[in-house]
Write a protein that binds this DNA or RNA. Sequence first.
RNA 1: GCCGGGAUGGCGGAAUUGGUAGACGCACACGACUCAAAAUCGUGCGGAGCAAUCCAUGGGAGUUCGAUUCUCCCUCCCGGCACCA
Length: 950
Amino acid sequence: MKSYDPKKIEKKWQAAWQKSGIYNANDKSHKPKFYSLIEFPYPSGDGLHVGHVRSNTAMDIISRKRRMEGHNVLYPIGWDAFGLPTENYALKTGKAPAVVTKENIATFRRQLQMLGFSFDWSREINTTDPNYYKWTQWIFLEFWKRGLAYKKKTFINWCPKDKIGLANEEVINGCCERCGTTVEKREKEQWMLAITKYANRLDRDLDTVDYLPEIKTQQRNWIGRSEGAEIEFAIKNSDLKITTFTTRADTLFGVTYIVLAPEHDLVTNVLEHTTNAAEIQKYINAAKKKTEIERTAADREKTGVELKGIRAINPANNEEVPVWIADYVLADYGTGAVMAVPAHDERDWEFATKYNLPITEVVVPNIIDKRNPPVAGKKTVERKNVHAIVRDPSTGKYLGLQWKNFDWLTFPMGGIEDGEDAATAAQREVLEETGFKNLKVIRVLAGQARAEYFAAHKDQNRVSYTTAVLLELVDHAQVPLSPEEKEKYDIVWLDSSKLNYEHMTHAEIGVWVEKISAKNPAYTGEGMLINSGTFTNTNSNEAKTAIAKKFGKIVTTYKLRDWVFSRQRYWGEPIPLIHCKKCGWQAVPEKDLPIILPPVKNYQPTDTGESPLAATTAAMKKWRTTKCPKCGGAATRETDTMPNWAGSSWYFLRYIDPRNKKTLADKKKLKTWQPVDWYNGGMEHTTLHLLYSRFWNKFLYDIGAAPTSEPYAKRTAHGLILAADGEKMSKSRGNVINPDQVVATYGADTLRLYEMFMGPFDQPVTWNTDGIIGPRRFLERVWRLQEKIYKKATDTVLESLVQKTIKKVSADIEAMQFNTAISAMMILVNSLEKAEKISAELYEILLQLLAPFAPHITEEIWHTLGHTKSIHLTPWPKTDETKIQKEEVTIIVQVDGKMRDSFQAMPTLGEQEAVKQAKNLASVQKWLLQKTVARIVYVPGRLVNIVTVS
RNA sequence: GCCGGGAUGGCGGAAUUGGUAGACGCACACGACUCAAAAUCGUGCGGAGCAAUCCAUGGGAGUUCGAUUCUCCCUCCCGGCACCA
């Protein structure tokens, strides 16, 4: 037997597969189709890294298994080659980006081929190929023709380092996604794509696809669907109106002021009617200068300026309220204006407290006392109550009353008398009921609580609105108590663990405890409406809809913003539009597509945000100068380019028909292959590429260019491979591991196997090669097993293990649990090694199971065994349940839940027999000495648990 | 702050979803082969203990005959969102 030499056999089989084209998809096959997709790589100068190997191998295993299962598989590959790193490299070296890209692709192609992935190389695509980006430009024009691409002067996120505008999705914590530089705001004219028009469908249609739940959640959070209401506030002495957006229409009667975003259009319109215009203007200017980070830092103190002289009218009660501007209100969410309800919104509370604005409570928590529920037929009395929560600072305990005639434990409490405030009432009650006379009011807990209960001592039902007052004992001085008060209760001191409904009578106690520790007293929960006109005494959830309908209209808003689509850099698809002074923006006629990216001398972006295509050189001027397609007059080309997300937003469609010159892809072929059956990629693309491409696909579907409304039926995500330092691999950190060396040392099959064995596929792993020798040894063992093959060997135990392994490996691949699949094959090999001889039949099944993981070695052995057809075209082994021998199993014997012994038996063993055998075991009897058996638990085929009386 | 995910030997990780905790692999130790080394093969390998046995899945409580698995509380780590009204 030759020794295992991956260097030789891997090259050999890669060439053979390439020649025979066994991995090429067939557009006309009658087999069921399977379209498996990986995120096509960006061919960076670093070359392929081990992270690519992990995700590509995973989908390669699945694709290979599907082929063996009789599917017509499309597993394509291409290059997402436009983008900043290449351009920056070109800037540094002076090499043209197109040249750099070509070189990088050559490296990537060599590396991917070296790893034996079963890609259909005949469909290779490249987003920087004019034959490809012709259709990217075409799609853009379709957007434009339908008004979904539009130019807008807007504040954009500007990265001062990369000198590029960024989409919201590319800003992470206020920093550039790529380079980490703090993003500035710049006002620029930008092309926008109206992704918000698709917000509803992008959200709703997640129900129709099989994505990992966390992917759906993240997309939903990003889209940020929010059901609420728009309510208009008229401006006094004016025709103007302020439209506010709220999700809490039920709190409308609690509005005490209105806040506009500083950028709100209305501010300019009313400025002349204000008495403090200069102050307002100053605030607006300051707000514009702030970066996103400065403005949205959550712990930042709120600021604002009143529009003095302007009053808004609450449509619910015709009350006049002041109007403010404040930068805690975002211009581009909702309507850019909010109705402030400080009693029930933490931000409004903070603002109102700072600027002394009134606070009106309109929702109170409503509790029905479970232990003392209202009794039917008794009369109901409304009361205003106070609870005095008195803390003794010397002990940290709280003052309570243990009632003598009832089983009650309460705080000092009582009704609030007319004209009396809560703090005074609380002190009065403490004095009357306990005699303590020196008290300090800490604070009145904001917000009342409503409770419904039966007051036994008065034989009546009560609806109480209670305010709690937090007090501290200054000293223990007491006045003598009246005899009748002494009769009623004993004074007790409660530590804080007693402040709950289990110990205390007050149904409100939970509310009080929460309020005592709350950082912000605004009550944001649901409850019963008070001070709300005809809506008083209705539940806040019901009132929400009713009030919204009566005083406004119900609307849905989204956090998602339109996509800033233009970039001022060179290495991207030119936006195919022409500007004519007379006719405005015009589309490049389809026959003139693609607009080819012209060669330039200087790729340097400018600080003014102009693309290199806008340079004043003669060559660039010449490129820009064109004719208006409408009037034939002089016109200029758009110089902005598209973001690097453009080409990847539809590439999965182009794979289906990559050389089509007439259309982006043939409709019939699209119908054959779409949707992608299984798309694996990184979580980091969830709110970028994955969302963008769903949007483009939906648009293409709407115009009849894509056959399905959703592009991907199933989406999974891999865990990142981190560098040895636990950081993300990146060139800037200099910690990228290139697979070339590993393949040279161990072979591609070993690397593939190792990466799938390292840990759970969906979790991140830290790269190290300490364990790689394990998978290599495993392959060596598989190789050497050839020597043990005998034609007539049979071993039912081994046969049954092989069948179990088929079952396990098949299921694990589907669940992407590759590590346990490999472990199962290792267990099988360990057993096969111990056998004297093994049958060719069993060995071949092992090879077939291993083939998707290690395609070269298995193909080599397969042919050595005398086969002439590729192992990768053989049918995937099926589990034969009849061969899973009815083996004896180990029955565990426990005494009182602790494992004491075990015995072998058939899994069908009956309870009586099992118990008998268990009790007969000497080691079990030892544990039963002087004990009485209370009961016995028998889990068939698993265990016997003898429980004794304790 | 909110929403996810997680914590198991020296290390990477298993555990049929409530039923022998530590599969499989790495590392390590000892042995065989060898002049020797590598490779390979065999044995051992959570901790304490001579042993019987006891302890042990981030910490604490609970449910259960039985908890890595379920419930509650706490600590720490990793992602995502973050003044979204």
